[in-house]
Design a protein around this nucleic acid. Structure first.
Lengths: 252, 252
DNA sequence: CGGTACGTTGAGATCGGTCAAAGGTTGTGG
DNA sequence: CCACAACCTTTGACCGATCTCAACGTACCG
């Protein structure tokens, strides 16, 4: 495992800087993290539910998702991840993985040993804070998904998920225009929204017919962002990106 | 604000010790946290969505819940909390609250200033780790709720929630027998499971008719834990209580 | 003793699920 | 360059879990 690989870990530093202020020395320390690189094919498991994990995976390029299995073999997708995301920071403190993480496209992943994470966290409080913030922001996104599944109908759910993916791609600097990467199958959208693939298909057709979006080969085009956002009730505050903190009141 | 209030914060130390090992000095430091005590009536807001918060609430007795509002005024409950729980550790790092926390029963709450949290975290790595672990465990519970809402039918959802509340009460040392505290209205159960109060009522009747549980005035009795657990597909591993780590495999 | 909040009941509507099959697209190997 | 396989999307008919609305019963509290 090479001691430092220069700017291979750049996506991680970029991502953390979206939510936290990092000193130059913090960035240095992150670049210096020891890691093992891997190129994964779609569907490959990065972490499997029940595993005891001794390293922490960073997604450098491509897409990944977390998921959990239900009783009858049904699958629930818990989150989608893209370049720069920390895939299992939780496993740096919780020994047994409570869910799985899989590559969704071809993906470049860096595995960092738990011990190295622990060391850098101990040495640099700024990094500890950035990691903790990231954990908290992830939890906030999980909460929004609970609302999505519990209190929105099929069209709202899919619209909201679409808004979230668009917002994340913009922040990750993947796309800015009305066209976005869309590496998901309708079955994956179904597993993320608690619906069936058949129903997802029908809802997407309706959204296309209404001129809100169109989908092509692995591509999404948003024609009417205002309408998409309104239909979803999308408010990006829960993503906790810097400068997205609006509508604040003061309290004890 | 008194500098230390001896064992008033005992429930917090107890709770953290369920998931992390604390040195005696860590416990000392926790007992010494400055705080303001408050006795809250049912329904009182502890944190409100959109607030800028400069203190962190600890629940010393009673029950509380987190919730988030949807578009049409619909409410989704995100978590239930009981004695010892940290109610808004996230607000110690994320400035704007992305959801609300309310007292569910009469509740005793200690408010600790953000600055005091930050100081104790910086001085004692053991406490920092315990806080982070607690955050990660909360996120794990959110994930299980996503699965609950996305991939289980009404009876499974209610059964699972019941199992979770029972397990939490056991860990908090509130009850051990087949009788448990049940301070929830059917409307709150509905808001937590993504159902309507009417349907929750019918499902609870079915569960009583099947002899699995009975409910009385603010009390739940579990007659057939095995059947309840099986119907829910309940596996307590996601709660990350110590000694609940079973079914582990080894991985890179 | 009256009010308010909570629990219960019934009838009818609907959103989304199920099952099964047919079209498309993509990639691979001969 | 074609043929085939695998996977993904689309379609149709039917079904059923859960919602909606509206009323009635019940317990607690001042």
């Amino acid at each position: 495992m090479p001691a430092f690989n220069s700017d291979k870990l750049m996506p991680l530093v970029r991502k953390l800087a979206i939510r936290s202020s990092l000193e130059p020395a913090d960035a240095e320390a992150l670049f210096g993290l020891p890691h093992r690189l891997a190129l994964l094919d779609p569907g490959v498991y990065i972490v499997r539910e029940g595993d005891i994990v001794d390293s922490c995976a960073l997604l450098l390029s491509g897409y990944a998702h977390r998921s959990k299995m239900g009783l009858g073999g049904s699958r629930q997708i818990l989150a989608f991840h893209m370049r720069g995301d920390l895939l299992d920071l939780q496993n740096s403190l919780l020994e047994v993985a409570d869910h799985s993480v899989q590559a969704l496209t071809c993906a470049e992943v860096a595995f960092v040993p738990r011990s190295a994470i622990a060391a850098v966290v101990e040495k640099r409080p700024g990094i500890a804070r950035a990691f903790w913030r990231d954990t908290l922001a992830d939890a906030s996104i999980f909460r929004e998904w609970i609302l999505n599944l519990g209190r929105r109908d099929a069209r709202q759910r899919i619209s909201h998920l679409t808004c979230e993916i668009v917002a994340m791609q913009q922040q990750a600097g993947i796309c800015a225009g009305p066209s976005y990467a869309w590496p998901f199958t309708q079955e994956q959208i179904a597993d993320a929204t608690g619906l069936t693939p058949v129903h997802v298909n029908r809802v997407l057709q309706a959204m296309r017919a209404d001129g809100v979006i169109s989908t092509g080969q692995r591509v999404l085009i948003v024609h009417d962002w205002a309408r998409l956002k309104a239909a979803a009730g999308f408010n990006p505050a829960y993503l906790h990106f810097k400068g997205a903190g609006q509508g604040a009141r003061l309290t004890a």
